[in-house]
Design a protein around this nucleic acid. Sequence first.
DNA 1: GCCGTTTTCGGCCCGACTGTTTTCAGTCG
Length: 583
Amino acid sequence: MTRQAVADALEEIGLLLELRGENPFKTRAYGNGARILRSLDRDLAALVRSGELGTIPGIGAALSEKITTLVNTGELPYLEKLRAEVPPGLLDCLKIQGLGPKKAQVLWSCLGVTGLDSLEAACKEGRVKALDGFGATTERKLLEGIERLRSQAGRFLQPVVQEAAERLLKTIRAVPGVLRAEAAGSVRRRAETSKDIDLVTSATDAEGVMDAFVAAAGIEEVTGRGPTKCSVRLVAGPAVDLRVVDDVSYPAALFYFTGSKAHNVAVRGRAQRLGFRLNEYGLVRNEDGAAVDCEDEAAIYAALGLAWIPPELREDQAAAHHSLPRLVAADDIRGVLHCHSTWSDGTATVAEMADAARKLGLSYLGLCDHSQSAAYAGGLSVERVVAQREEIDRLNRTFGSEFRILHGIESDILADGRLDYPDEVLERFDLVVGSVHSRFQLSANEQTARLLRAIDNPYLDIVGHLTGRILLSRDPYPLHVERVLDAAAEAGVAVEINAHPERLDIDAKALRYGLARGMQTAVNPDAHSTEGLQDIRYGLGIARKGWCTPDDVLNAWPLDRLLDHLSSRRARALARGGARGSS
DNA sequence: GCCGTTTTCGGCCCGACTGTTTTCAGTCG
């Protein structure tokens, strides 16, 4: 059993125990265990074999034994027993914002709620508001929550679909006779979430490819199979469509199944105007019915007088543009800004994070742990800020010129828009990220005023996760996004692309709006572990979808340029603030 | 359930907000 699957099992035990009303510290121990496993950068099976599991802080005798059983046998009787005692649908109910285990337990025991359907019925019949501790508002919010959950059902985050696609492609490419194979659809376009996975391949032996495909690991059921198309559903949830074509048709098929629908319509329209017909099998000249020889996608675009359009841009009007930007790519990234360490809620030490960044070939690491008002995340008091600085200075002396840790902070933006340290503390940081972590329920005007005041603070360098959204789970808070981006562009404050796959905040559309007004950005992994640094690839997808060039991205700049920018930006902002007599 | 240890059991991150109350419990970050 994989580390991820074991972590999921521990997490589920924690939730089931909570629903049974167990000691909260016991349930938390399972949740902690799941988090520890997810951020572990060692081989779990090897840890089990060597008996070192119990030496990991947070993993004691009980968890160690259960993890060992899961790894060795793939099952756990203890978990099966818990599952039998709690209705499975009750876990779905916990995904509703504002409904925790205590209330779910009451709904189950008093009203017989066992899932979203029975909860919806109970709400509509007014039985929920009659319960002690519940009221009409709660009942209404539960119904809204059910509605939102249903509207997002069947969508999956990038780590799920990207990794499944890569794994299946590896299987397909290993089949004899396979010439080309790629992911198409929303996965290739790097959409924030995907409904399903589309794979396109060219092969001399379609049957052989499909045989290997349906035999791949992680497939729950085969839902359809014909001569050119095979559909399956994965254990992880998403459906996968595999299309096998001959190699001549491959470029057109890849183009067609990559979409988006709007992009295909635009390009087909252009083809029509130029006297061609474009479908999933190829590009055909109308006057003589001859197929145009296109050995790859670029040739199709070229035949229509267009440069090849990167899949990330195939959402809107890209086909109407004559020149496309040189999009930022993984190779451009020089460093990371905004990640955490054990000084606050990260799982790796500063030295470990720095080491991981160096191994990725990066030349700087902006460490931005949580600030003092983030008590839940172990935010740094002023004294600990000073101590952390000493540790960072000490480490920097060991690196020489090839690597540098920047001492930053992720400072909470308070409800009134102030940052949560006085200026004399803020000025000591190399880098200040400001983020909203509380008071999401302010009105759009209040939230906007809050962000605008933060942007006016001369010490703020980067706005963190602008809208607070959590994909598939929490909507953005009300905010006049464009007004905030206008102000950030004006003040020279960057707005990050939070690269965590559950956030991807800001989104590509807002990013493009800001960039067009001169705003800068940074692709920030917001990593809480060494592994989390890898999330930068999801942020790059958004950057590219937002038409972002390397010049727009602070962490695509060499360290010298970044440091010059940060110091001159602050000097300008202080001069401006001084002139206005505010701070 | 984990940890640290006064080696047998008590403390475990904590403050703010919401909706329900009339002083608080549940949820969240």
